[in-house]
Amino acid sequence: MAQAWESPADNLIKAAQEDLNNYEKQAESLTPSKKPAITRILRMLPATEGRLKESENPEHPSWKETRKRLNDLNQRLNDLLAGKQADKPAASDPAASPDSEKDRFALDAQRDEDERNLRWLEKLLTNTRGTFDNLDPMTLQNPSEREYASKKLNEMSQVVKKFHNPEKPAIKAVIARVEALHASTQKAFVDAELKGKELEIAKKEAEIKKVAAEKQRQAEEKAAKASAPQDADKKMQAVQKLKEAGSAMPGDSQLAAEPMPEDAYQGSDKAELLELAQSKWNAQHADKKILAKGIAMRKWDRKTVWREDSLDPTKKYKVDFSSIQVWVITKTDEKVATQYTVEISKDHMKNDAFKVYVPEDLNSSGIFKTHMLLQNVK
């Protein structure tokens, strides 16, 4: 009667069972003399074993049952290859007892689990290599970096605890790598903590300096405000002294080199313009007698433009006027004479009405004036 096998938990287990059904059937008629056939089946068994290892249901009865069948077939074929006839073991044979078979299955399961964990641990080490290689005190100031490194180390440690045979060379080597990585990472954590304290101290020192600088600035600003009235008084006094003393005079050589201005205008209204300028001058500066006067411009300067109305930019108005300048020279002191300018304009929009501008403050630096030797005035 054919044996009833456990229903497979997934397609990988099912495929492995189908392989075994075929190989077991072939093995029934094998004898030690049929080594080529034995060898051929043995070469096929690793593929079947690979299917089982890829299964995600190693705890399912069908997986365990299939694994046992695979181990039994492998042992049977190797016995045949060694020249042993595959007889059914006697019931009294300890190797055939249920306990012995159970122990053998347990060892196989542990070996498979160790292999899976070994591959997983090696994968973890490879995938996290970039993370752990780049750990430094500054990087670890980021909480997410510390959390990720700790998480991966803990994950590796949990895998290490699952090994059944940690003394196996391959497993021992990978455990050593994990332990070394754990030690170097813990050192990096300590260095990062020290660096964090240094940064915190530096930050506090910077804050203290910032506060001190702000206090200094406020103190200086307060002092400046307190001294502002005094400084203003000093400036006003200095300006007054300049006004009283008059503008700074050039040296003798410069005064001597300054010629009389040109009297180039020859218009028919010249006499009228000179008289107008002098009368306005005398009205404002009776104490400054005019020693000489003239017009350096050769003609009136006329300007005609259209300008926008300041209240209504869409409107424009016409400006049409002419201007001319009359120079006058007065005595400044016993040595120096000074030339000033009187501006005369004629508004053509108002029937050529005259306007005359005579500077009010002769000591102002904002007006045009030229100094020369008094003796050179003609």
Rank of each mutant, 00 (worst) to 15 (best):
N117R: 04
Y23G: 02
Q110R: 14
I175P: 04
V356D: 02
K289H: 12
L374R: 03
S322P: 07
K161P: 04
K14P: 05
K369M: 10
L12V: 10
N74G: 15
D93Y: 08
L291G: 01
L135F: 04
A224D: 06
D309A: 04
A277K: 02
Q110S: 10
R76Q: 15
S184M: 07
L20F: 10
A90N: 14
G251I: 04
E59G: 09
Q339V: 02
Q240R: 15
K369R: 11
A292L: 01
A245M: 09
A9Y: 02
P169C: 14
A277Y: 01
V211I: 09
N134Q: 09
K241T: 10
E113V: 02
S253A: 14
M349T: 14
P94L: 13
S97G: 08
E193Q: 09
M156N: 01
E262Q: 15
L121Q: 00
I344H: 00
E49G: 14
A213V: 06
A188D: 02
V328T: 00
V377M: 01
I38H: 02
K84Y: 11
A176S: 08
F354H: 11
V211D: 10
K315L: 13
H285R: 04
R76P: 08
L255V: 05
N154A: 08
K335D: 01
T39H: 14
E220T: 01
Q278A: 11
I367T: 09
L273G: 05
E360S: 10
Y340Q: 05
A4M: 14
L125V: 04
A228G: 11
H60D: 10
V358A: 01
W306G: 04
E65N: 04
I290K: 03
A4I: 15
K303T: 14
D136M: 07
D347N: 11
G246K: 00
M138L: 12
P61G: 05
D231I: 15
